[in-house]
Design a protein around this nucleic acid. Structure first.
Lengths: 245, 245
DNA sequence: ATCTGTGATATGTGATCACAGTAGACGTTG
DNA sequence: CAACGTCTACTGTGATCACATATCACAGAT
């Protein structure tokens, strides 16, 4: 049989679409610890019925990004030092691993992509030093993806999902100071270019520890903010702009 | 206010019940690679409507224990060498980590529990060397739980979930020979008793590598079995007895 | 005999409804 | 004025229905 070549019809469900949007919002730090969600509200904003939202939310709960709070409410977990240390431990166990593999299998296309991502920041500096969490996410995951590790990558993505709300705290607290993160990213990229797996891994660990220490600072502030934040949540919509469109 | 002390009403949903049953079936190796499931059948067997089943199944898909096969069918993933190597890598990255922590924090109660689990096998040898996968699971996770690591433990549980169908293969292939696994478990328990974290970690790695090599053997056989298995699936119910009750 | 279109059957998906339960507002009572 | 009970609004949950779509068996044409 012959004829015109067709593009594949994307066989995507609404459930996946909803999940993707929520996942995005999380990794961008658009949810803060303590935020509450409700299914009907989400469904309305997303233009679907409750069903796909339920399933997406259920998945987020299973991944630990949301929790079932008492009295049938869904909440972004509050800050928890123990849990965060555990999260750091897991990241340090897994991310250097995939980094090593990625560097060993590195190719020109990926290097170029990584350069491009880092360059965005310099050019697109209109945000005036405002850290672009999505960019950070892209850098790490284009690197990790090169490891071609179908089991480890989703695991790491799950960890980042839970880091998201903390990133929100960091962002609010540290603000522009976060910009120097790109120094570390540069170092990692250089190591990847040289094929120096060890150096790249060390860079990743440094990056993780850096965000951890920033978070430790931010968390101290949160205790004071907490009461105010909770009050504000009652009046203002906790909804991140990304999803309201 | 005073009065009699009441036990907590367990606020459990059907969704969780369904998930627990399926999770159990997986870790016991009651599902084999390639098995297919359908929501209505599950719902009927479990005595619920489709809704809770859908959500539990969706979670299993998110965890990688099931996959969405073409034409709206749910399948237990087929054996995949690359995936399995990745799984092994992840296990070796995480399980020694929690083992180390567990040994450091070891207490008498946990040691006793571990002894008890290993003793079961010797006493309850009625299965004639038939490996009790549930017992294996309990041993590892009572050990790991002692690490008190709320992030890492679910991660590891997710990995085991995906190991389940492979265990099924091992069990079918290796049969009684698997009994010597307890030697390694003994070694691990001894190390835990002495507080020797390094030795316990080495034991865990040995255990993982052992099950991996058993699996490598079994996987060769699967290629031949495959055609037969697929035919059998059409006539016989793939349903594990555990769930039919 | 082989290929092809058609209908029946069965699947997951999404929408909708009824319901149990909680929290907070409000009125009542002491 | 404070403590208590009731009532209302809202939540997630589970059941059910309608639907698009894939597979298979079969009949018809070539």
């Amino acid at each position: 049989m012959s004829g015109p070549v067709f593009g594949r019809i994307d066989q995507t469900t609404m459930r996946e679409g909803v999940y993707a949007q929520l996942h995005d919002a999380f990794t961008r730090g658009q949810f803060a610890p303590g935020d509450t969600l409700n299914l009907r509200g989400l469904a309305e904003r997303l233009g679907t019925s409750m069903t796909p939202v339920r399933e997406a939310v259920r998945r987020l709960v299973a991944e630990g990004a949301l929790i079932d709070a008492p009295s049938r409410t869904l909440r972004v977990p509050d800050f928890d030092l123990r849990q965060m240390q555990d999260l750091k431990l897991a990241r340090i166990a897994l991310e250097p691993l995939v980094t090593g593999r990625a560097v060993e299998r590195m190719d020109a296309a990926t290097l170029e992509a990584l350069e491009g991502i880092l360059a965005e920041d310099t050019v697109d500096g209109k945000q005036a030093g405002m850290p672009d969490l999505a960019q950070n996410y892209r850098f790490h995951f284009t690197l990790y993806r090169r490891a071609d590790s179908p089991v480890l990558l989703p695991l790491i993505a799950g960890l980042w999902l839970r880091y998201g709300p903390y990133l929100n705290l960091i962002m609010r607290h540290a603000g522009p100071e976060i910009g120097k993160g790109n120094d570390i990213h540069m170092t990692i990229l250089d190591a990847a270019r040289r094929g120096d797996a060890k150096a790249a891994q060390a860079g990743i660990v440094a990056d993780i520890e850096r965000s951890f220490s920033l978070l430790a600072e931010a968390s101290e502030e949160q205790a004071g903010d907490d009461r105010m934040k909770r009050r504000a949540r009652l009046t203002a919509s906790p909804w991140p702009e990304q999803l309201s469109r």
